[in-house]
């Protein structure tokens, strides 16, 4: 849950990158860490196995002065994608403010993607949350694969809801689309604190999602 410290004029927000195994969650954080200005980022921490598979989480702290008078600190986490680590995913979701659901565009990974999306919803319920109440965006990663599923298929599969959300195409290994994805979810979270956007972020998320989804190709 977002935490505001008036004494330090700081807001802390937690974003979790979620998705099936090897979909590119850690690659997102590595590429972000390489591209973001050094004065805005902390060290990238990975709790991984010797084979670089995420064991607990990856963590990256990013700061911005976007909100006037406040330092906003975004705490980026990934979850381990392998099915066996479900308890760990539930723990990492504690206190989450926003989610990036990373979809592996490879045709052969569709069943795993769908299973992971369903698992996300189950784990949100464990944390007394739902996709209807928490800001989230979709990232269709690995768009450079020759056998990538078409975007309209991915939209139909993952964004076919009454309230569509923002979705982004990406090639995380090359850094394509990763900043757009992060900016998308960050804006959704910051909108909650905008006088002009109103106090109820979920309403705004829905409106933003509809507008963006309409322009997504």
């Amino acid at each position: 849950m977002a935490f505001i410290n008036y004494s330090r004029r700081e807001i802390q927000l937690k974003i979790v990158y979620y998705g099936c195994a090897l979909c590119g969650k850690t690659t997102n954080l590595i590429s972000l860490h390489q591209r973001i200005n050094s004065n805005q980022k902390g060290e990238l921490v990975s709790l991984a196995t010797d084979a670089d598979r995420t064991l607990f989480f990856d963590f990256l702290s990013l700061s911005t002065k976007t909100l006037p008078g406040f330092n906003t600190r975004f705490q980026l986490y990934t979850v381990p994608g392998q099915p066996v680590y479900n308890t760990t995913r539930q723990l990492v979701l504690k206190g989450v403010d926003g989610i990036v659901f990373v979809v592996d565009s490879h045709w052969d990974k569709m069943a795993e993607n769908v299973e992971s999306f369903s698992n996300l919803q189950d784990n949100l319920i464990q944390n007394h949350l739902t996709l209807a109440t928490i800001p989230y965006v979709l990232q269709y990663n690995k768009r450079d694969l020759p056998n990538a599923a078409p975007i309209h298929y991915l939209e139909y599969t993952f964004n076919n809801r009454a309230t569509k959300v923002l979705s982004y195409e990406a090639v995380a290994s090359k850094g394509d689309g990763i900043l757009e994805t992060l900016n998308g979810v960050a804006r959704l979270l910051l909108a909650k604190y905008s006088k002009s956007a109103g106090a109820n972020s979920n309403v705004d998320v829905t409106a933003a999602g509809k507008a963006a989804a309409a322009s997504t190709t």
Partner: peptide, 18 residues
Amino acid sequence: EPLQVEGDFDGSERSVFS
């Protein structure tokens, strides 16, 4: 009171990080 500050942070073109 909930924290509310001036500004439209939801503008679709605005970058928080670049």
